[in-house]
């Protein structure tokens, strides 16, 4: 269809014209910084401010990747994600199941359960920080006196900041799970009841498989969310404790490298690592887990 070409060009032109505003925004705030970051990773910072940075190629990548602090950060991140995602998803699912009943006043509970989504991380951190405070917090009130205080404690600091992330993720997780539960086909659940399925069988053999697209979506979203935790660590551990490295998850390590150590090169390398990890995780999830997901086709 040669005759159609000019028209097609015109349509393409119009399409790009309409996309232009979005493209500009993306270019300025996403594409350019993304590319620039790769460049930064190849330059080493001068030992003293004011001197020009030096091109070192992949050398800096090697240095960062083999450093102890990076390894520690990686381990912390791994445990952190492992604590946040399954707990948050399971908690959200349990809350959603509890609220998935037509009881008067249930909408109040729904509002309460989902409210953590709209709570700012700063507020959450301050509230939890107070609860975990060694003097005025919940533990001394209960008569428990951990040494050192929870947030300075090598064993408990990471679980403590993970707890805040779980609490915050619960709201989103609850909303996702509730939406999932409400979209389940009633007739299939009723058929299972008539077929003699008990509560347990019903949940594991029918509800969970039918909910698998939702669970999968929650897993992807939750993983990305967990990897991007920053606020509560900054507020509760923060630069004032920069020697305390047990809660240096990757994103925080990026921030620390840039703002405290003033080393954009290292920060760039770390953020690329974070990007690659998230990319790989998401690809793995899409490729392997999605096979086990059944999308109901009505």
């Amino acid at each position: 269809m040669k005759g159609g070409s000019p028209r097609r060009y015109r349509e393409w032109g119009l399409a790009y014209l309409m996309l232009l505003p979005a493209l500009v925004v993306f270019a300025v705030f996403t594409f350019y910084p993304f590319a620039r970051n790769f460049k930064l990773a190849l330059y080493q910072n001068p030992p003293f401010p004011g001197l020009p940075s030096r091109y070192v190629g992949l050398h800096q990548v090697g240095t960062v990747l083999s450093s102890t602090s990076f390894h520690q950060s990686l381990v912390s991140t791994f445990f952190y994600v492992l604590m946040v995602v399954p707990t948050g998803l399971l908690g959200g699912l349990l809350l959603a199941l509890a609220a998935h009943k037509a009881i008067r006043g249930m909408s109040i509970f729904r509002t309460v359960f989902s409210s953590t989504v709209v709570t700012s991380v700063a507020v959450a951190a301050v509230v939890f920080g107070t609860l975990m405070d060694p003097v005025v917090g919940l533990l001394p009130w209960l008569g428990i006196d951990p040494h050192p205080a929870i947030l300075q404690n090598p064993t408990w600091a990471l679980p403590a900041v993970a707890l805040i992330a779980v609490w915050q993720f619960l709201g989103l997780s609850f909303i996702i799970m509730t939406a999932g539960l409400q979209s389940l086909p009633d007739e299939v659940l009723e058929a299972a009841r008539l077929d003699g399925a008990g509560t347990w069988t019903m949940f594991w053999r029918v509800t969970v498989p039918l909910l698998s697209p939702t669970l999968f979506f929650g897993l992807v979203v939750g993983t990305i969310y967990a990897f991007q935790s920053f606020g509560q660590i900054d507020i509760l551990i923060g630069p004032q404790n920069s020697g305390f490295t047990h809660t240096n998850v990757l994103l925080y390590a990026v921030y620390q490298a840039l703002s405290i150590q003033n080393d954009p090169g290292m920060a760039a390398v770390l953020s690329i690592v974070l990007f690659v990890i998230l990319l790989v995780f998401t690809l793995i999830q899409l490729r392997f887990l999605e096979r086990r997901v059944t999308y109901a086709n009505a």
Partner: peptide, 19 residues
């Protein structure tokens, strides 16, 4: 309980277990 009534139902949407 429905499961103890010994009745089988065929639904308009068939209600098969998709997985």
């Amino acid at each position: 309980e429905p499961k103890d009534r010994d009745v089988a139902m065929v639904f308009q949407s068939y209600a098969l277990y998709p997985h």
